[in-house]
Design a protein around this nucleic acid. Structure first.
Lengths: 358, 358
DNA sequence: CTGAAAGCGCTTACAG
DNA sequence: CTGAAAGCGCTTACAG
């Protein structure tokens, strides 16, 4: 169970230390003890200078601050957090960091949590619930202040650990039936239900659905369900569907399009569960010589950068990633302080953006 | 200097603990001491079971493992790292997480470092060197194993802290003249030099340059320099330039295009320092009724997803973000173990991708 | 193969 | 306003 081969951790300083400011102590670690000695106080007072400076005499504070500056002191957060039983770490687990799907969300959580004094740790589950479980347990070891998870398809073990931790847990990018704790998200069901209804309203029939079929992905399942119900309500059978397992790429979108058209040549519109697939389908239509939206209409989900760049521009559903990020961070902050008084579920909603493709 | 208002950290467990597995201990923290008691050993042996299981008697190991499983034990990494003077944390500071520019890099570093047993911490400097400094110092408090930084425009104080830390420091996305430590990157100078040369080779003259002019950004500066030299070598004066301060958006790209064409209507090509700006410019050309590449040629940098989606598709320079990420992670791993024997600078290069826009 | 002692660098809770 | 003592939950370095 040893994490990795341990080697000599500290390495020799780089050859040229010519640029090192001369006031810096030249060797050895500098901790509160060293600062205390230089400032002629005990480390207790140094600690106070850092956390409650108003309880330290001005002159003493000055000496301590000077000593810290001169010696390049950085307080050891490991020791601080262990001692205070309180670490600012907040793990955020997302399915992928490579796509720009979550990138606005990620940047906003990162910035907002950082400003509030927390230290976010991002982990990438690769749409794999077991991997998510492993990451969560690893992160729990850092005694975090709260936990942010994407989606609601956690393993039972993940759920157990979350609940037993007693920490504020926030699920995001979904509206789970049985939440683990608090929620900041939107209804994936409604999203596809609404866009499918919209397509029907714009006169499209035989509406297909193309999506990413990763195992136990609640968001995909919800989206599919929304599409199905809307299609049925429109008097059709939800036949024109095609999943793609795991890959979120333009090529996968093209494959899905060909798959659906191959089995159901009468398809008049395809709602995609992701902009990435939708844009891939748009490009494939151009290669196949299909006119959009006359021969076939295409819609996406996400309103990623791609959507307004592709030609014809993509009709899609905008997910307010930045808002989700900000809300999550705020919720973490208030939950930790203990003053959170808002609802346990925040629905940020979504917005249908009609462009040229449908 | 207190990081944030401290409140009650532990919160009451969620109302419904119906799903909690019954074998889990119902209250109180479970540490090595608790596991030790249950397994009838001392915590020393529990510690051994975790790190050097082969030095523990099979039957003892079984009891310990069972106890850990039953009680949902998660070792406290704060204590472990403090005690071992060795934390698996590796901060990675990037200018932005919102754009997909760095997203492949980020995901790959994340995955590779995680697999090697490290815990990457991503920070977002917003193209601000002072902010980067603040982040670095904050991260240093976690006693990291190594540091990964983007670019080479660190403040003197950042450089001091890096060097004094004695840690492996990797600069990336650049090839600095005076590196802080090791480097995994490519030449930003060459990138623009080569693409400008290529444009000349394809018959374009009066080549402009559009870029993000964030203060003290070495990568922008290098790119601009490469363009300038290539233009001069082609016998022209590098006049057709226009910077944009801070914003990496399609709109900013459109602004830059209009700015250059407004002052230099004879511009025949514009090399952009970023795909985002380039794509924005392509879209603007379409709005202005300019034909690409006949009226004006456009090139980008990065080969982001957008580039192959926009029409006409973008001629650009591919930066191997995933490779950079993997190389960085490997370098960190070997440097920490102490067996890194490769060159201190790894040049991953780049590749000109010719498409329709030039 | 297992354990008792000391300590990592801080903070908490108390004295003064 | 400042300090001495105890302890956070582990690991190191030694004994046995």
């Amino acid at each position: 169970m040893s994490l990795r081969s341990q080697g000599s951790k500290r390495r020799a300083a780089p050859e040229s230390s010519a640029q090192t400011s001369p006031t810096f102590q030249q060797d050895g670690k500098v901790g509160m003890k060293e600062i205390a000695e230089r400032a002629k106080v005990t480390k207790m007072t140094v600690s106070r200078a850092l956390r409650t400076p108003d309880k330290v005499a001005p002159e003493t504070l000055r000496r301590i601050t000077a000593a810290m500056e001169e010696m390049g002191f950085v307080p050891n957060s490991l020791a601080g957090s262990l001692s205070a039983r309180n670490s600012p770490i907040v793990p955020v687990i997302v399915p992928t960091m490579a796509n720009s799907i979550f990138s606005d969300f990620i940047e906003e959580v990162s910035l907002t949590l950082d400003r509030a004094g927390f230290t976010p740790i991002f982990g990438c589950s690769n749409f794999d619930n077991e991997y998510e479980e492993r990451l969560l347990i690893k992160y729990l070891g850092w005694q975090p202040s709260a936990i942010i998870l994407t989606g609601a398809s956690q393993t039972p073990r993940t759920r157990d650990f979350c609940q037993r931790s007693g920490l504020p847990v926030i699920q995001t990018w979904c509206l789970p039936e049985h939440p683990l704790g608090r929620v900041v998200g939107f209804s994936n069901y409604d999203m596809l239900y609404q866009i499918t209804k919209a397509l029907q309203g714009w006169g499209y029939r035989n509406i297909g659905f193309g999506f990413l079929n990763t195992p136990n992905n609640d968001r995909s399942r919800q989206r599919r369900l929304g599409w199905e119900v809307a299609v049925r309500e429109g008097g059709d059978e939800p036949l024109h569907t095609r999943a793609q397992g795991g890959e979120l790429s333009l090529e996968a979108g093209a494959d899905i399009l060909r798959g659906i058209l191959g089995r159901h040549p009468d398809t008049k519109a395809i709602a995609f569960g992701s902009d990435v697939h939708a844009v891939g389908a748009v490009l494939e239509c151009k290669r196949l010589g299909l006119r959009i939206p006359d021969d076939i209409a295409i819609t996406g989900c996400g309103d990623m950068g791609l959507s307004s760049v592709v030609s014809p521009t993509l009709t899609t559903v905008r997910i307010p990633g930045r808002t989700i990020g900000r809300e999550c961070a705020t919720m973490v902050n208030l939950s930790v302080v203990g003053t959170y008084a808002g609802p346990s579920t925040v629905n940020v909603g979504f917005e249908i953006v009609r462009r040229e493709s449908a």
